[in-house]
Amino acid sequence: MIDIKNLTYVYGENTPFQKTALDNINLHIKADSIVGIIGHTGCGKSTLVSHLNGILKPKQGEVTVDGVKLWDKSTNMRQIRFKVGLVFQYPEYQLFEETVAKDIAYGVKNMGLSQEEINQRVAMSADLCNITPEIMGKSPFDLSGGQKRRVAIAGIIAMQPKVLVLDEPASGLDPKGREEILGMISEYRKRTHSTVLLVSHSMEDVARFADKLIVMDGGKILCYDDTPKVFSRYADKMESIGLDIPQVTKIMGAVEGKNVPVFTVEQAVDEIVKLINNS
């Protein structure tokens, strides 16, 4: 689905602030998978995802999405943006319309669809994102933080992108808000079988949702593998760059005295029940 070859990006070239944000990245992401991207602030996560729909132009290397090479002369970049839905960090600042319904419709309208199709997609997106008709009629500036976030993401989901990329969609929200957002994302995937890329700081979140994990450090990919493998094989490596494996994994590791493939609370419960029954 997504192919990245020798991607390099430099910020502020030829100024004293020059910084290589991405350093020769190679990556292949399969269709219909959820991939988590983790790493420290400033490791290049956001820069990487900004290349997926052509917001940033690579200094070197190329990005191919669904067989279409980005930044090729014949490539229509707007079409790429409808195919790859990118939700930036704190997406609520993108809201601008008079009503929530109109704001969600903005992206779909840009696609040039019929009014009927627009209404249908907006309704589907609102339903998926748990936005009630009452909220739909309100001004987006009158909503709470969590609601704003949901509306902003709904605006991207309404475009029904084949690839949904979310840059820390749950940051700054309370646990309930987090659950709602993450629930929306997995529901969208269930319904449409699209590829999802989830940038996150929370090991617990990516452990629960992602099939595969990309760990980034200093503009490079430290490892890219199935989630259980990353946490079991690269635990030391991750700790050395200051990242942590999920807390339950640590606890279960201490309980059993070895590394166990347990990454969520639910799995831990099953594992403990099994242990008690065995003894």
């Binding site: 930036f88 993108q94 601008f96």
Partner: peptide, 28 residues
């Protein structure tokens, strides 16, 4: 960037369309 990701088009179109395209940037 956020509005571009939602398919906003700032380059093409008539002058009126271009002016309208700026609203999603100015309001936020």
């Amino acid at each position: 960037n956020a509005q571009k990701s939602r398919g906003a088009d700032f380059e093409s179109g008539s002058l009126v369309q271009k002016a309208k395209a700026i609203v999603p940037i100015l309001v936020p």
